[in-house]
Amino acid sequence: MSAPLYQLKAEFFKTLGHPVRIRVLELLSEREHGVAEMLLDTCVEPAYLSQQLAVLRRANLVVARREGTAVYYALTSPQVAELLCVARVILSGVLANQAELLADLRAPAPPESAPRRD
């Protein structure tokens, strides 16, 4: 019996749930990148980047190709880039709502009315 779709989705989102992996996918959304380029942009150790790329390869989100001694990565589907764009839109809305709440909290409180004496 296969895993329910919601479990597969949860595993998929767990794969995306790492800042370095998200950054790599963002870079690859623009174009194919070599490992050396990604090292400069992600500011992580080569072994650590290699681990994160392996996770993305196992999830079939990226594909690698070798050219001489260089290794280049690309997205397996342009829909990954679309997913990142949708996430950005959702986060923008969430942050905008939070900014409005923060502004409300920072606004001066209205003066309290004096107690009435009858």
Rank of each mutant, 00 (worst) to 15 (best):
T42D: 02
A103Q: 08
R88T: 12
L56P: 03
L102V: 10
A59F: 01
V55S: 05
A36T: 07
I22W: 00
V62M: 03
F13G: 04
L102N: 06
A103D: 07
P115D: 14
K9G: 13
L39D: 13
L95Q: 11
C43R: 15
A114H: 11
V71T: 14
C85V: 07
H18M: 02
E37H: 07
V55R: 08
R21G: 04
A3H: 06
L28S: 01
A81F: 01
P19Y: 07
G34S: 15
S2L: 08
L56D: 03
P46Y: 00
D104V: 04
Y48P: 00
R58K: 12
V71H: 03
R21F: 06
R88D: 11
A109E: 15
V94H: 04
L40A: 13
L39V: 12
V71R: 08
P19H: 11
S113W: 14
L83I: 07
R21P: 06
A109R: 15
D104P: 05
Y6N: 09
P110M: 11
A96F: 14
S50P: 04
E67Y: 10
H18Y: 05
P110R: 13
D41G: 06
L95N: 14
A47V: 12
R116K: 15
Q79S: 09
V55F: 08
V62I: 09
A103W: 03
R65Y: 08
L5Y: 12
V35R: 08
Q51S: 09
T76M: 01
L53H: 03
E112R: 15
E100H: 13
S50A: 11
G68T: 09
L83E: 01
V44M: 01
E82L: 08
A59I: 05
Q52V: 06
Y6H: 13
L75C: 07
V63H: 08
S92M: 10
R106E: 15
A99N: 06
R88L: 11
M38E: 02
A107K: 10
E30H: 05
A96Y: 13
S29T: 01
Y6G: 00
A109T: 14
L83M: 08
E100A: 14
E11T: 00
V62N: 00
N60D: 07
E82N: 06
T42L: 09
Y48V: 02
Q79N: 06
A109N: 12
N60P: 00
A3Y: 08
S50Y: 09
Y73Q: 10
G34C: 09
A103T: 08
R57Q: 13
V62S: 01
Y48F: 11
E100M: 13
Q98E: 14
V80F: 04
V80H: 04
N60F: 00
L61Y: 02
P111N: 07
H18K: 01
A107H: 09
I90F: 09
L56F: 00
E37D: 11
R31C: 03
E26I: 03
G34H: 05
A10P: 04
Q51M: 06
Q7P: 04
R21H: 04
L25D: 02
K14L: 14
E67Q: 15
D118A: 13
A10R: 12
V44E: 02
S29G: 09
R106H: 13
E67T: 12
C43D: 14
L83T: 07
V71C: 06
P108V: 13
C43M: 15
L84A: 03
R66Y: 05
S113M: 15
R65H: 13
G93V: 09
L83R: 04
